[in-house]
């Protein structure tokens, strides 16, 4: 097994005659924050959908810790250790925060169908452990005080944090964040940047798509740049920032 958590090699995706991704290759190392940037419509979310199994690639390989992910259903890929958050937040609004997080533990909270009916001690113990773990995860993102609140009542920034905690509840090795700071004000962004750093420091790999250049440059260890479905640059933030192709394709248009 290599030090790379996720390896994407020569991946292509076609919708009918439209090539959304072509020959995309990059590696996400363990224990780092990796960024994928690119103009709108470059195919970034498609990359996430391919990794999480919502779509299947038409060419190439996607390996996670040496195992191929291609053809696996999303819940199986989650079992392998990949969790994701959404560009449009999808928390469960009619549940409280604790329950939201516990939904993420589905795989790890196996007390069998029958234990349930007999309210077996093993089942109660599993339930108790899950509750404690959920509280711990909420405390990681600073939401433990609001554990019993309905998720619908959270502020936008807190909803993002809840999504983080819920994703971490699946006990992933790699966390995919789809535009984590979309729609946030600068102070919320700063807080979220800290949260993401904390998550990495706890040993998770983080792979994010983000539009906010300052945010990406300040946070990521390495960055890949996608333009018209192809990777045009890959490297450290400094390398990417000074790459002429990137400046032309992306940074030059930042103010449009």
């Amino acid at each position: 097994m290599s030090a790379n958590l996720l390896s994407i090699r020569n991946v292509g995706k076609r919708f009918g005659g439209l090539h959304v991704l072509q020959d995309v290759s990059f590696e996400v190392p363990a224990g780092s924050i990796y960024g994928l940037i690119g103009p709108n419509g470059a195919g970034k979310t498609t990359v996430f959908n391919l990794i999480t199994g919502l779509l299947e690639p038409t060419a190439g390989h996607i390996d996670f810790q040496g195992d191929s992910l291609v053809g696996l259903e999303p819940h199986r890929i989650t079992h392998k250790g990949i969790a994701r958050t959404f560009q449009n937040i999808r928390i469960f609004k009619e549940m409280d925060l604790l329950e939201n997080v516990m939904v993420g533990m589905h795989d790890h909270l196996d007390y069998g169908g029958f234990g349930l009916f007999f309210n077996s001690p093993a089942c109660r113990a599993a339930e108790k452990r899950a509750r404690e773990r959920a509280r711990e995860l909420l405390s990681w993102v600073g939401l433990d005080k609001k554990a019993d609140m309905l998720a619908d009542n959270l502020s936008y920034g807190d909803q993002r944090k809840l999504e983080f905690a819920r994703a971490l509840a699946t006990e992933p090795k790699l966390l995919l964040l789809d535009e984590p700071v979309a729609g946030m004000n600068p102070s919320e962004k700063t807080i979220l940047m800290e949260e993401i750093n904390n998550i990495r420091n706890r040993g998770y790999g983080v792979f994010m798509i983000e539009h906010d250049m300052r945010f990406v440059m300040g946070l990521c260890d390495r960055i890949a740049v996608l333009n018209f479905g192809r990777i045009i640059a890959e490297g450290t933030p400094d390398e990417v920032r000074t790459n002429p192709d990137v400046i032309e394709a992306y940074l030059g248009k930042e103010d449009e």
Partner: peptide, 24 residues
């Protein structure tokens, strides 16, 4: 129960539930 939470999660967003590891 976890089964109930999973069902309520699906009722709100099957896609989110699926990506959280639930066999929808």
């Amino acid at each position: 129960t976890q089964l109930g939470r999973a069902l309520r999660a699906i009722a709100e967003s099957p896609k989110a539930a699926w990506l959280l590891g639930i066999n929808v």
